[in-house]
Protein backbone atom coordinates (compact mmCIF):
# COMPACT_ATOMS: atom_id res chain seq x y z
CA UNK A 1 0.00 0.00 0.00
CA UNK A 2 2.86 2.33 0.71
CA UNK A 3 4.56 1.91 -2.61
CA UNK A 4 1.26 2.63 -4.31
CA UNK A 5 1.14 5.79 -2.28
CA UNK A 6 4.68 6.79 -2.97
CA UNK A 7 4.45 6.02 -6.65
CA UNK A 8 1.27 8.00 -6.99
CA UNK A 9 2.57 10.94 -5.08
CA UNK A 10 4.93 12.98 -7.12
CA UNK A 11 5.54 15.50 -4.38
CA UNK A 12 6.97 13.20 -1.73
CA UNK A 13 10.53 14.34 -1.20
CA UNK A 14 13.44 11.96 -1.62
CA UNK A 15 14.38 12.30 2.03
CA UNK A 16 10.92 11.25 3.11
CA UNK A 17 10.99 8.28 0.77
CA UNK A 18 14.40 7.16 2.02
CA UNK A 19 13.32 7.53 5.65
CA UNK A 20 10.23 5.52 4.93
CA UNK A 21 12.04 2.68 3.23
CA UNK A 22 14.56 2.42 6.04
CA UNK A 23 12.18 2.76 8.98
CA UNK A 24 9.26 0.88 7.46
CA UNK A 25 10.96 -2.53 7.60
CA UNK A 26 12.38 -1.72 11.03
CA UNK A 27 8.99 -0.96 12.49
CA UNK A 28 7.46 -4.01 10.83
CA UNK A 29 10.27 -6.27 12.08
CA UNK A 30 9.83 -4.82 15.55
CA UNK A 31 6.10 -5.51 15.50
CA UNK A 32 6.57 -9.08 14.31
CA UNK A 33 9.39 -9.61 16.79
CA UNK A 34 7.20 -8.36 19.60
CA UNK A 35 4.63 -11.06 18.93
CA UNK A 36 7.05 -13.80 17.96
CA UNK A 37 9.73 -13.45 20.64
CA UNK A 38 9.51 -16.06 23.41
CA UNK A 39 11.43 -13.94 25.86
CA UNK A 40 9.35 -11.12 27.30
CA UNK A 41 12.29 -8.72 27.43
CA UNK A 42 13.08 -9.26 23.74
CA UNK A 43 9.41 -8.70 23.05
CA UNK A 44 9.43 -5.38 24.89
CA UNK A 45 12.62 -4.23 23.17
CA UNK A 46 11.11 -5.03 19.77
CA UNK A 47 8.15 -2.88 20.69
CA UNK A 48 10.55 -0.08 21.60
CA UNK A 49 12.06 -0.28 18.09
CA UNK A 50 8.60 -0.06 16.53
CA UNK A 51 7.61 2.89 18.68
CA UNK A 52 10.81 4.79 17.94
CA UNK A 53 10.28 4.28 14.21
CA UNK A 54 6.70 5.44 14.51
CA UNK A 55 7.87 8.54 16.37
CA UNK A 56 10.27 9.35 13.55
CA UNK A 57 7.49 8.76 11.02
CA UNK A 58 5.38 11.37 12.81
CA UNK A 59 8.26 13.85 12.72
CA UNK A 60 8.75 13.24 9.02
CA UNK A 61 5.03 13.64 8.45
CA UNK A 62 5.16 17.16 9.88
CA UNK A 63 3.96 16.26 13.35
CA UNK A 64 7.03 17.07 15.48
CA UNK A 65 5.08 17.35 18.74
CA UNK A 66 3.35 14.02 18.26
CA UNK A 67 6.64 12.41 17.23
CA UNK A 68 8.52 13.63 20.27
CA UNK A 69 5.68 12.73 22.61
CA UNK A 70 5.67 9.27 21.10
CA UNK A 71 9.38 8.86 21.82
CA UNK A 72 9.48 10.55 25.22
CA UNK A 73 6.27 9.20 26.71
CA UNK A 74 5.78 5.82 25.09
CA UNK A 75 9.34 4.72 24.50
CA UNK A 76 10.97 6.64 27.30
CA UNK A 77 8.50 6.35 30.12
CA UNK A 78 5.96 3.63 29.52
CA UNK A 79 8.18 1.01 27.93
CA UNK A 80 10.92 1.46 30.49
CA UNK A 81 8.37 1.07 33.26
CA UNK A 82 7.16 -2.01 31.47
CA UNK A 83 10.70 -3.42 31.39
CA UNK A 84 11.07 -2.70 35.11
CA UNK A 85 7.94 -4.72 35.78
CA UNK A 86 9.18 -7.55 33.58
CA UNK A 87 12.50 -7.68 35.39
CA UNK A 88 10.73 -7.56 38.71
CA UNK A 89 8.30 -10.41 38.13
CA UNK A 90 10.90 -12.48 36.36
CA UNK A 91 11.79 -12.69 32.73
CA UNK A 92 11.80 -16.47 32.87
CA UNK A 93 8.19 -16.89 33.85
CA UNK A 94 7.02 -17.32 30.29
CA UNK A 95 3.47 -18.02 29.26
CA UNK A 96 2.10 -21.47 28.76
CA UNK A 97 2.22 -22.27 25.08
CA UNK A 98 -0.20 -25.19 25.22
CA UNK A 99 -3.08 -24.78 22.84
CA UNK A 100 -6.32 -25.39 24.66
CA UNK A 101 -8.32 -25.31 21.43
CA UNK A 102 -6.70 -27.35 18.68
CA UNK A 103 -5.78 -25.42 15.57
CA UNK A 104 -6.68 -22.16 17.22
CA UNK A 105 -3.31 -20.54 16.63
CA UNK A 106 -3.22 -21.39 12.95
CA UNK A 107 -6.78 -20.18 12.51
CA UNK A 108 -6.00 -16.94 14.33
CA UNK A 109 -2.91 -16.41 12.19
CA UNK A 110 -4.84 -16.97 8.97
CA UNK A 111 -7.68 -14.71 10.07
CA UNK A 112 -5.21 -12.02 11.10
CA UNK A 113 -3.38 -12.20 7.78
CA UNK A 114 -6.65 -12.07 5.90
CA UNK A 115 -7.72 -9.02 7.87
CA UNK A 116 -4.39 -7.29 7.29
CA UNK A 117 -4.61 -8.06 3.57
CA UNK A 118 -8.15 -6.73 3.42
CA UNK A 119 -7.26 -3.49 5.19
CA UNK A 120 -4.05 -3.02 3.18
CA UNK A 121 -5.71 -3.62 -0.17
CA UNK A 122 -8.76 -1.48 0.49
CA UNK A 123 -6.75 1.39 1.93
CA UNK A 124 -4.25 1.12 -0.90
CA UNK A 125 -7.10 1.34 -3.33
CA UNK A 126 -8.69 4.23 -1.49
CA UNK A 127 -5.51 6.29 -1.68
CA UNK A 128 -4.40 5.37 -5.20
CA UNK A 129 -4.04 8.47 -7.32
CA UNK A 130 -4.63 10.86 -4.47
CA UNK A 131 -1.92 13.45 -3.82
CA UNK A 132 -0.79 13.49 -0.21
CA UNK A 133 -1.71 16.58 1.69
CA UNK A 134 0.47 18.42 4.11
CA UNK A 135 0.31 20.33 7.36
CA UNK A 136 1.91 23.53 6.14
CA UNK A 137 -1.14 25.56 7.12
CA UNK A 138 -1.44 24.64 10.78
CA UNK A 139 2.33 24.41 11.16
CA UNK A 140 2.94 27.96 9.90
CA UNK A 141 4.74 30.31 12.32
CA UNK A 142 5.92 27.39 14.45
CA UNK A 143 2.25 26.73 15.16
CA UNK A 144 2.31 22.97 15.56
CA UNK A 145 1.87 22.94 19.33
CA UNK A 146 -0.38 26.01 19.23
CA UNK A 147 -2.73 24.34 16.80
CA UNK A 148 -2.92 21.18 18.85
CA UNK A 149 -3.66 23.22 21.98
CA UNK A 150 -6.28 25.14 20.07
CA UNK A 151 -8.08 21.95 19.07
CA UNK A 152 -7.67 20.35 22.45
CA UNK A 153 -9.28 23.21 24.34
CA UNK A 154 -12.04 23.92 21.85
CA UNK A 155 -13.35 20.98 19.83
CA UNK A 156 -12.15 18.23 22.13
CA UNK A 157 -12.50 20.09 25.42
CA UNK A 158 -15.01 17.72 26.97
CA UNK A 159 -13.16 14.59 25.87
CA UNK A 160 -9.96 16.09 27.25
CA UNK A 161 -11.59 16.85 30.60
CA UNK A 162 -13.14 13.42 30.73
CA UNK A 163 -9.75 11.73 30.51
CA UNK A 164 -9.23 12.94 34.09
CA UNK A 165 -11.96 10.51 35.12
CA UNK A 166 -9.98 7.78 33.34
CA UNK A 167 -6.88 8.63 35.34
CA UNK A 168 -8.80 8.52 38.63
CA UNK A 169 -10.31 5.16 37.69
CA UNK A 170 -6.88 3.80 36.80
CA UNK A 171 -5.39 4.96 40.10
CA UNK A 172 -8.27 3.57 42.15
CA UNK A 173 -8.17 0.35 40.14
CA UNK A 174 -4.46 -0.12 40.79
CA UNK A 175 -5.08 0.40 44.50
CA UNK A 176 -7.94 -2.07 44.53
CA UNK A 177 -5.90 -4.74 42.78
CA UNK A 178 -2.62 -4.27 44.61
CA UNK A 179 -3.08 -2.61 47.99
CA UNK A 180 -3.79 -4.65 51.11
CA UNK A 181 -5.03 -2.66 54.06
CA UNK A 182 -3.42 -3.46 57.37
CA UNK A 183 -5.75 -5.09 59.86
CA UNK A 184 -4.26 -4.35 63.26
CA UNK A 185 -1.71 -1.81 64.47
CA UNK A 186 1.72 -1.93 62.88
CA UNK A 187 3.98 -4.37 64.79
CA UNK A 188 6.89 -2.73 66.57
CA UNK A 189 10.50 -3.55 65.81
CA UNK A 190 10.78 -5.27 69.17
CA UNK A 191 7.84 -7.50 68.43
CA UNK A 192 9.23 -8.33 65.01
CA UNK A 193 12.62 -9.27 66.43
CA UNK A 194 11.04 -11.50 69.08
CA UNK A 195 8.89 -13.14 66.47
CA UNK A 196 11.91 -13.85 64.32
CA UNK A 197 13.94 -15.46 67.10
CA UNK A 198 10.95 -17.57 68.15
CA UNK A 199 10.39 -18.76 64.60
CA UNK A 200 13.54 -20.88 64.75
CA UNK A 201 15.02 -19.20 61.70
CA UNK A 202 16.63 -15.92 62.66
CA UNK A 203 18.57 -15.56 59.43
CA UNK A 204 16.87 -14.23 56.28
CA UNK A 205 15.27 -16.55 53.79
CA UNK A 206 17.35 -17.40 50.73
CA UNK A 207 16.68 -14.97 47.93
CA UNK A 208 15.28 -16.20 44.68
CA UNK A 209 17.88 -17.05 42.12
CA UNK A 210 20.66 -17.61 44.62
CA UNK A 211 23.00 -20.28 43.20
CA UNK A 212 20.66 -21.04 40.36
CA UNK A 213 20.55 -20.27 36.67
CA UNK A 214 18.84 -16.90 36.86
CA UNK A 215 18.19 -13.98 39.13
CA UNK A 216 14.49 -13.46 38.54
CA UNK A 217 11.97 -13.78 41.33
CA UNK A 218 10.35 -16.72 39.56
CA UNK A 219 13.51 -18.81 39.83
CA UNK A 220 13.88 -20.64 43.13
CA UNK A 221 17.14 -20.75 45.06
CA UNK A 222 19.11 -24.01 44.97
CA UNK A 223 20.57 -25.81 47.94
CA UNK A 224 24.17 -27.12 47.75
CA UNK A 225 22.97 -30.52 46.57
CA UNK A 226 21.09 -28.94 43.67
CA UNK A 227 17.59 -29.32 45.07
CA UNK A 228 15.20 -26.42 45.39
CA UNK A 229 15.14 -24.44 48.62
CA UNK A 230 11.42 -24.26 49.45
CA UNK A 231 11.91 -21.17 51.61
CA UNK A 232 12.97 -19.18 48.57
CA UNK A 233 9.47 -19.40 47.18
CA UNK A 234 6.85 -16.97 48.30
CA UNK A 235 3.78 -18.45 49.94
CA UNK A 236 0.72 -19.09 47.87
CA UNK A 237 -0.02 -21.72 45.28
CA UNK A 238 0.50 -19.54 42.22
CA UNK A 239 4.09 -18.67 43.01
CA UNK A 240 5.03 -22.27 43.66
CA UNK A 241 3.76 -23.16 40.20
CA UNK A 242 6.06 -20.57 38.72
CA UNK A 243 8.89 -22.09 40.70
CA UNK A 244 8.19 -25.52 39.28
CA UNK A 245 8.33 -24.05 35.81
CA UNK A 246 11.77 -22.76 36.71
CA UNK A 247 12.75 -26.19 37.94
CA UNK A 248 12.08 -27.64 34.52
CA UNK A 249 14.53 -25.22 33.04
CA UNK A 250 17.19 -26.02 35.58
CA UNK A 251 16.95 -29.73 34.98
CA UNK A 252 17.18 -29.26 31.27
Amino acid sequence: MHDVLLASAANVSTGEAITFWILGPVSLAGAIGMVAARNAVHSALSLVATMMSLGLFYVVEQGPFLGLVQIIVYTGAIMILFLFVLMLIGRDSSDSLVETLRGQRVAALLAGLAFALLVALTLGRAFTGRPPKNLDGPNANNGNVDSIAHKLFSDYLFAFELTSALLIIAAVGAMVLAHIERDGPKPTQKALARERIRSGRPQPLPGPGVLSSGNAIGTPALLPDGTIAPESLMGGQSTINVGQGGLGEIER
Binding site: Y58, F127, N134, P138, S154, L157
Partner: peptide, 27 residues
Amino acid sequence: MSALTAVPANILAAGTNNGAFVTPSIS
Protein backbone atom coordinates in the same frame (compact mmCIF):
# COMPACT_ATOMS: atom_id res chain seq x y z
CA MET B 1 0.05 4.22 9.18
CA SER B 2 2.06 6.99 7.65
CA ALA B 3 -0.43 6.80 4.83
CA LEU B 4 -3.19 7.81 7.16
CA THR B 5 -1.36 10.66 8.76
CA ALA B 6 -0.82 12.04 5.29
CA VAL B 7 -4.48 12.06 4.40
CA PRO B 8 -6.42 14.56 6.43
CA ALA B 9 -4.72 17.64 5.09
CA ASN B 10 -6.21 20.11 7.43
CA ILE B 11 -5.96 18.05 10.58
CA LEU B 12 -5.58 21.26 12.47
CA ALA B 13 -6.56 23.75 9.82
CA ALA B 14 -9.89 24.61 11.39
CA GLY B 15 -8.25 25.97 14.49
CA THR B 16 -5.30 27.74 12.98
CA ASN B 17 -3.04 29.51 15.35
CA ASN B 18 -3.67 32.84 13.66
CA GLY B 19 -7.27 33.12 14.75
CA ALA B 20 -8.09 34.29 18.25
CA PHE B 21 -9.12 31.50 20.61
CA VAL B 22 -12.84 31.36 21.25
CA THR B 23 -13.84 29.63 24.44
CA PRO B 24 -16.29 26.88 23.63
CA SER B 25 -19.67 27.43 25.20
CA ILE B 26 -20.95 24.65 27.40
CA SER B 27 -24.57 24.33 28.48
